[in-house]
């Protein structure tokens, strides 16, 4: 694996995790009353989370197209764990798409509504559910990544 590909893989993992951690922080703050200071935090952190997910998507895509598709995928399919690709990677390729768009919705809500979010409790509850979904899906993506990597027995 070239240095660029190693960098892509590691960055894909860390940026994805960073996105999850940032939305975890968003979730924790959403349980408190929203004031000016907290809405500033929510806007910045959710935007950083969105950028992390988008960057992870691009780097993961590069790694997949340049290396995983041609080298790793055939190895996994020939190994004792072909389901690691056919079930988990295939699922991951589709489910992950929810993350950046759900993150975008959260960012837009924080920027458009601002402190008004505290008066609109129904929308606030929805954003809490949305952020929880982002964190849960993100965790599932991270864990499926472990399953897929584990099947790539190169030796």
């Amino acid at each position: 694996m070239s240095v660029l590909l190693q960098f892509s893989l590691i960055s894909h993992i860390f940026l994805g995790l960073l996105g999850i951690i940032l939305f975890y922080a968003v979730l924790m703050v959403l349980f408190k009353p929203i004031d000016f200071k907290r809405i500033k935090f929510l806007r910045r952190v959710s935007l950083l989370g969105l950028i992390s997910f988008l960057s992870s998507w691009i780097l993961g895509g590069y790694y997949y197209v340049v290396y995983y598709g041609n080298i790793v995928k055939p190895l996994i399919k020939k190994s004792a764990y072909p389901w690691a690709h056919s079930i988990f990677m295939e699922a991951k390729e589709h489910i992950f798409l929810f993350l950046p768009f759900a993150a975008l919705v959260a960012v837009l809500i924080f920027y458009i509504l601002g402190e008004e979010l505290e008066q609109k409790q129904a929308i606030k509850k929805t954003v809490i559910i949305l952020s929880s979904l982002i964190v849960i899906l993100g965790a599932i993506m991270a864990l499926t990544g472990i399953i897929i990597s584990g099947a790539a027995r190169l030796r």
Binding site: L9, I13, F14, S149, G150, L154
Partner: peptide, 14 residues
């Protein structure tokens, strides 16, 4: 996850 990434790159899936 850093440890897992490091193991993956150095030794492949284990």
């Amino acid at each position: 996850f850093g440890i897992l990434a490091g193991v993956r790159i150095k030794y492949g899936g284990t």
